[in-house]
Amino acid sequence: RSVMTEEYKVPDGMVGFIIGRGGEQISRIQQESGCKIQIAPDSGGLPERSCMLTGTPESVQSAKRLLDQIVE
C-alpha cells in the first residue's frame, strides 16, 4: 500500500475549527480518515494555511472531504 504526502490549503481563519477544543476535531478527522494531518504553525500572513496530509491515496481523499465539510 503506497503512502503519499500531499499539501492541502485551508483558510487561515478556519484552523481553530479544524483543530477543535483540545485538538479533538483534528484527532477525529485523523481517526476517521486514517490520514495523518500536520497543520503549519502559522500562515506567514497569507489567507491560507498549509496542511500536510500523509497516508494512502484513499485516506488523503477522505481527509480532504472531512476538512472541506468543516470549512464550508
Rank of each mutant, 00 (worst) to 15 (best):
R1S: 05
R1L: 04
R1I: 14
S2T: 14
S2K: 13
S2F: 11
S2R: 14
V3F: 07
V3A: 08
V3R: 11
M4E: 06
M4Y: 13
T5S: 13
T5V: 09
E6F: 07
E6P: 01
E6M: 13
E7G: 05
E7W: 09
E7V: 05
E7C: 15
E7I: 12
Y8V: 08
Y8H: 15
Y8N: 01
Y8I: 11
K9M: 10
K9C: 05
K9Y: 07
K9S: 05
V10A: 04
V10Y: 03
P11V: 03
P11W: 03
D12E: 14
G13L: 07
G13K: 14
G13A: 13
G13F: 04
M14L: 13
M14N: 05
V15G: 04
V15C: 04
G16L: 05
G16V: 05
G16T: 09
G16S: 09
F17D: 15
I19R: 10
G20L: 02
G20N: 05
G20Y: 02
R21S: 15
R21T: 06
R21Q: 15
G22V: 04
G22S: 05
G22K: 14
G22Y: 04
G23C: 05
G23K: 09
E24D: 08
E24N: 03
E24Y: 08
E24L: 05
Q25T: 10
Q25V: 07
Q25D: 07
I26C: 05
I26F: 06
I26L: 15
S27V: 12
S27Q: 15
R28M: 07
R28S: 10
R28T: 08
R28G: 06
R28P: 01
R28H: 12
I29E: 01
Q31E: 15
E32S: 07
E32D: 07
E32P: 01
E32W: 03
S33C: 03
S33A: 08
S33E: 01
S33K: 01
S33T: 11
S33I: 02
G34V: 02
G34Q: 06
G34W: 02
G34F: 02
C35E: 00
C35V: 06
C35F: 00
C35Y: 00
C35H: 00
C35G: 01
C35A: 10
K36W: 04
K36P: 01
K36D: 12
I37F: 02
I37C: 04
I37A: 02
I37Y: 00
I37V: 10
Q38S: 13
Q38V: 14
Q38K: 10
I39T: 02
I39K: 01
I39W: 05
P41S: 12
P41Y: 03
P41V: 05
P41H: 04
P41C: 11
D42F: 06
D42W: 06
S43Y: 04
S43R: 06
S43E: 10
G44S: 14
G44L: 09
G44P: 08
G44D: 12
G44A: 13
G45K: 06
G45I: 04
G45W: 03
L46K: 13
L46Q: 14
L46P: 04
L46G: 13
P47E: 11
P47G: 12
P47D: 13
P47W: 05
E48M: 06
R49A: 06
R49F: 02
S50T: 12
S50V: 12
C51A: 08
C51H: 01
C51Y: 05
C51P: 01
C51D: 00
C51T: 06
M52Q: 11
M52I: 12
M52L: 14
M52F: 13
L53V: 04
L53S: 00
L53N: 00
T54I: 09
T54V: 09
T54M: 14
T54G: 02
G55Q: 00
G55A: 01
G55W: 00
T56D: 08
T56N: 11
T56S: 13
T56Q: 10
T56Y: 08
P57W: 05
P57T: 10
P57N: 14
P57K: 10
P57R: 12
E58H: 09
E58A: 09
E58R: 07
S59V: 05
S59A: 14
V60R: 13
V60F: 01
V60C: 09
V60Q: 03
V60G: 00
Q61L: 14
Q61R: 14
S62Q: 12
S62C: 15
S62H: 13
S62Y: 08
S62T: 13
S62G: 13
A63L: 01
A63S: 02
A63D: 01
A63W: 00
A63E: 00
K64C: 04
K64A: 07
K64T: 08
R65P: 01
L66T: 08
L66S: 11
L66R: 09
L66I: 10
L66G: 05
L67Q: 01
D68K: 14
Q69V: 13
Q69R: 13
Q69Y: 03
Q69A: 13
I70G: 05
I70H: 08
I70W: 12
V71C: 10
E72P: 08
E72C: 11
E72V: 15
E72T: 15
